[in-house]
Design a protein around this nucleic acid. Structure first.
Ligand SMILES: NC(=O)c1ccc[n+]([C@@H]2O[C@H](COP(=O)([O-])OP(=O)(O)OC[C@H]3O[C@@H](n4cnc5c(N)ncnc54)[C@H](O)[C@@H]3O)[C@@H](O)[C@H]2O)c1
Ligand SMILES: NC(=O)c1ccc[n+]([C@@H]2O[C@H](COP(=O)([O-])OP(=O)(O)OC[C@H]3O[C@@H](n4cnc5c(N)ncnc54)[C@H](O)[C@@H]3O)[C@@H](O)[C@H]2O)c1
Lengths: 249, 249
DNA sequence: AGTCGCTTGTGAACGGATGCACAAAGTCGC
DNA sequence: GCGACTTTGTGCATCCGTTCACAAGCGACT
């Protein structure tokens, strides 16, 4: 989620509103964020199964393939409706369709990448996005040597042209791959151009208005989390040595 | 802090049962996973402040810079100890040191990258890892044309050599940037070589033994989560239009 | 010393996510 | 058509993480 300025935290549920139907609202808006992330994983696994002509799958099989608990998987699927058959399982095609519907993948989402350096090149050349409904349709940089150069089949435009090009190509997701100091400025430009979703690779905390959704990918943070686990494990080992733990086997 | 009026309130938490908690003192290192991730972010913000010669910072300032709630920040910091001064704030240097200690960053963690394609090249060339205590010290691929070629100053080795090279260079973190079908095999090799932490970019669910820590970066999933929010927002707008919703001021 | 204002650190309440366990609901075999 | 078997969908208890609110502690100023 995007960082919000001062305090004003947005309350998701409508307060004292008179007539409220929390239970059976046709489209459940109440899907937990964590469940959404897992649905995307299930979708990938299911797509793979569909390619191998698997027609039905049980929660046990699917959960194993996705690396989660089967009860959790069933609960996740229950958020989007009841599409299983008791005693049998789920039809792969149906689940794929329903998850795509919920994730909004029935519509194409054009992507732009800003900052065509090492990472930007890799992203622009990556075939995995178009294949999943996220065509990369615009690239931007400030480097004059890059402007007009084709990368992954798309010409690089100057960031001054973000508003025009994003509007023309109906960009709905902006990916930031610039050096950290440039990220906030680029972000502001994207927001001004009407882009409401941003994926940020620069290790900075972006400030955005409430209506813009930001997700970040921070590799240094990932590594530091791994480092923490190494350290913790070392601590535990030390404790086990000293505190007399019985090693099995 | 919590001793309300009467001081000898110690025994408050003794609900009935007699012998129940053997694991009270085991490890004070019970820092929630989510807090660890945020500590890494605080560390980066604090490092930036230190560079600008900021010496002290309040929880309010730091939390704003890190994009979180100030109470949450204080609680996160409380997991690692009490290093603040009431009425004043925290000393930047002290916090940096303590967070580094907790995250295990006092030790260098050598990294290897497997799969030197688009993404692997970007990672190998990235200067942000060495600068944060994660030197990239080995690269692997299967492509004969790449073996022996220097990328980012490191020669690419064949994956057959993973055990030897990883041992020699004391690699503790393995990064997987191969095509999805190769990822599990590479993962198994890394695990056999003693690598206990893996960062996976391939969109597959890796199976590993319990003692190995895996984190994944899945860009397609990130985009699909963004897509979900776009769809949800569209739904809400449609609902507001149709169902006469009162927009709060 | 007193006290005033500021900020930390933390109980406690809350809310959301997880996992268990089981009734409901279906299929299959006979 | 019936009963046995399988698997879903979910109520419930639990756990984890977030947020609030405030006493305790510190420095500054008088
Ligand atoms: N390369 C990696 O593997 C990697 C890994 C993790 C994070 N990152 C982060 O991703 C970002 C990009 O990394 P990189 O290695 O590709 O850097 P890079 O230096 O190779 O590329 C940065 C690109 O951004 C362009 N740029 C600079 N200012 C700009 C602006 N104001 N508007 C638009 N474009 C601008 C530059 O011209 C350059 O082409 C950095 O923030 C980096 O910290 C990179
Ligand atoms: N490029 C991106 O921006 C991007 C984005 C998201 C995810 N990914 C994922 O990252 C991975 C790599 O992407 P890429 O674009 O760099 O692919 P790529 O095809 O450019 O590179 C893959 C590299 O892996 C090597 N390789 C193949 N089999 C191997 C094996 N068994 N052992 C070691 N190396 C092997 C190939 O020789 C090649 O050099 C893929 O799984 C992809 O889905 C990439």
């Amino acid at each position: 989620m995007g960082a919000r300025r001062g305090e004003a935290d947005e309350v998701v549920s409508a307060p004292g509103s008179a007539v409220d139907e929390p239970a059976v609202r046709e489209r459940a808006r109440a899907i937990p964020e964590a469940a959404v992330a897992r649905l995307a994983v299930y979708l990938r696994v299911l797509s793979g199964m569909a390619e191998q002509s698997v027609t039905t799958v049980s929660s046990e099989e699917l959960s194993a393939a996705a690396g989660v608990n089967s009860a959790k998987l069933r609960k996740d699927l229950s958020y989007i409706g009841s599409y299983g058959t008791r005693g049998v399982g789920y039809e792969v095609e149906v689940l794929v369709g329903q998850i795509e519907r919920i994730l909004g993948l029935t519509r194409k989402h054009s992507v732009c990448v800003v900052g065509i350096g090492n990472l930007g090149h890799a992203l622009a050349n990556y075939g995995g996005f178009p294949g999943r409904g996220f065509p990369v349709s615009a690239l931007f940089d400030v480097d004059e040597d890059l402007i007009g150069v084709p990368v992954g089949g798309i010409l690089v435009d100057h960031i001054e042209d973000i508003p025009r090009v994003c509007a023309e190509r109906e960009v709905s997701i902006g990916v930031i791959a610039t050096p950290p100091p440039a990220a906030q400025g680029v972000c502001d430009r994207l927001v001004s151009a009407g882009v409401q979703c941003i994926l940020n690779f620069a290790p900075v905390v972006l400030q955005v208005p409430d209506h813009v959704e930001v997700r970040k990918v921070d590799l240094a943070v990932e590594m530091q989390i791994l480092s923490f686990h190494v350290a913790r494990r070392a601590d535990e080992a030390a404790y086990a040595d000293e505190g007399g733990m019985v090693v099995p086997g």
